[in-house]
Amino acid sequence: MQHDVDFYRPNTTVELAEVLQKTAGRIVAGCTDVLPGMRRGKASMDPLVDISQVQELRFIREENGRVQIGALTTHADLVGSQLLNGAAPGLVEAAATVGCPQTRNRGTLGGNLANASPAADSAPPLLVLDAGIQLVRGSTRRSVPLKDFFRGPGQTVLASGEYIEQVFFDRPSGTWGMSFFKLGKRSGMAISVVSAAALLALGPEGRIQTVRMALGSVAATPVRSRNAEEFLTGTAPSPESFRKAGQAALQDISPIDDIRASAEYRRHSAGIAVQRVLEEAWAQAARRKI
């Protein structure tokens, strides 16, 4: 890896905007994906823009029911957040499975999303929260639904000179439950073979009023499963309906063979993963009701 590269270190978002205006730099923070990528020759040595000191971008807060998470929030921050434990337990569960303590102390939510791996652990929970992502470029801000943010493996809608400021979602309300499940090849430091997140809200008679389902590692990007959602909405929850929802979800995925698993195994596992997260989300909703 060569070290002949310019390095910028803005301390504020104003400084960051200035830097990005004058140079097409690569934004780095935790470096947990960037550095290995550079070593494999997969990332070019653009000028580096280190934003790890831009404290303005590191926050977890809630305003009027809207939860906002700054891009520099680490996975460890997510795991330790009381607010998120209440408002988005599935996201906390997911963050706890990322890598290991060392990588969780450095890896950021913004980095996880910008890296846009189809296996990004934070994506399925955020997708079922119907999260939006706030992007900033110079003085222009735009927000994009997270489901429209990913374009393909390693590809997002981020324009040159644009950075992620925050991710936001509305705190779920009513009788709701949320869960995340990740299937890895070992218990520690596991990259997901299949991951799934579900958010379920029950209506007055216990029927499913809202259901959102998302899957990771089974398509070119993390995806929502419309088929599972449509199948379940308005129905009475049951293990059998969840099993069928799992089958319905298979229509929304296009898994590939890779070093971790075959498409066939992913297909088999995705259906069950959907079932599991639905059961867990339902159980949580039931507990909330009491």
């Binding site: 290995p36 290991c100 090849k185 070992r186 218990s187 520690g188 430091m189 990259i191 070093i259 971790r260």
Partner: peptide, 23 residues
């Protein structure tokens, strides 16, 4: 340590999975 796509050997701890303390 298989050959990936006939082209490259598995050659990193990312893909060659040693048991961790959690396993």
């Amino acid at each position: 340590m298989p050959l990936k796509d006939g082209k490259r050997w598995v050659d990193s701890f990312t893909e060659y999975l040693l048991p961790t303390a959690q396993d």
